[in-house]
Design a protein around this nucleic acid. Structure first.
Lengths: 192, 192
DNA sequence: ACTCCGATGTCAGTCGCTGTCATGGGTACC
DNA sequence: GGTACCCATGACAGCGACTGACATCGGAGT
């Protein structure tokens, strides 16, 4: 049929994760990944901008979830309610069946500083996204930034709990519970 | 006197920042930096683990500020009060005279994704530091994580404001104000 | 049948980074 | 004052990530 097998990008990703888990990220060469897929190093870099990207590709999609979440929030919602809506919107991208894959991916990332670095940048991107959304809804600086930072914090905390929790509790639930705990944690301003 | 000029590490750093500002980070080779200092590439890597490190070296020092801040907090302080003490402790490492240098450094970092990446990792390290300190003071998970995340958020937000503010307001003041605003932002839990 | 497209291969080259060994002035110790 | 060691640096070879330029050749459209 076709000259080349379809799904090249996905096959590269699958081979990469398998090799990373088997012998480690640093110990795996891009050439190894390409060879395992029957391709060349050059072709790998045509699909992924760099070696780490093979683990982070697709992460732009669920950023839209944060945006949609805020857009779906009712009129007159407070900043933190907007944040909550945002997180819930993103949670749709993480159904239970995606958990095993996310766990394997996280195992690789946690084992390597360079990958953790990239991951923390992605979190910063999430925060920026939420901040922009809040400002579209009239929240002004520096409250927009603070609220967005809180959003990023709660999301990453909730996500890690979602991965670790064997009860398979939905990400949404964890997010809401953490937000509740956060509200309890921050005492009302006595008015300095 | 000595066989080699003293302060090699600092001279490398100065040359690096100058070159980065002049022609950009990517466009500057480690060899360029070394040559500008009258040294070799190999020697650069003996002082800095990698090219980016030349901009982040010394960042471990003020992490101690967070630790000392929490240790100095009064007995019976709440989680958020501990966080406040932590941030104030770190602020000591950023006196007004350090601002110009920090600004130049930030200019370079903001202009390059790879550097922003490293920076966001540093922020994650700060959060982890605060979390550990909070747990030493009896705060338990997940509150310790949430509070620490809030701390990291407020610190980075305050720091950027400190850099941008032409009034040269002390970092401490900005931190306290942001924390006050945060408390106002988070509504008391109505008790779900 | 002809043409063009586009995913892939090939190859050469740059740059970040590392291991290894050599060099030679300082310094301490006898 | 000689000798032995120390250690910051140089010199060199090499690996892996990544890029640019050009060639290849089945398939789709005309």
């Amino acid at each position: 049929m076709t000259r080349w097998e379809p799904g090249t990008k996905d096959r590269l990703q699958a081979a990469a994760i398998a090799l990373f888990l088997e012998r480690g990220y640093e110990e795996t060469t891009v050439q190894d990944i390409a060879a395992a897929t029957g391709l060349t190093e050059r072709t790998f870099f045509r699909h992924y901008a760099d070696k780490r990207e093979v683990l982070f590709s697709g992460g732009e999609q669920y950023r839209q979830g944060f945006v949609d979440g805020v857009r779906a929030a009712p009129e007159g919602a407070g900043p933190l309610e907007l944040v909550e809506a945002s997180l819930v919107g993103a949670a749709d991208f993480f159904p239970p069946e995606r958990r095993p894959w996310s766990q394997r991916r996280q195992t690789v990332i946690d084992a390597n500083p360079a990958l953790r670095e990239r991951e923390s940048l992605k979190r910063a991107a999430i925060t920026d996204t939420i901040e922009t959304c809040l400002e579209e809804r009239g929240v002004t600086a520096p409250e927009s930034r603070l609220a967005a930072e809180v959003g990023g914090a709660v999301f990453t905390t909730a996500f890690r709990q979602w991965l670790a929790d064997d009860e398979e509790r939905p990400l949404q639930d964890i997010e809401r519970e953490l937000l509740r705990r956060l509200r309890a944690l921050v005492p009302a301003d006595p008015g300095t």
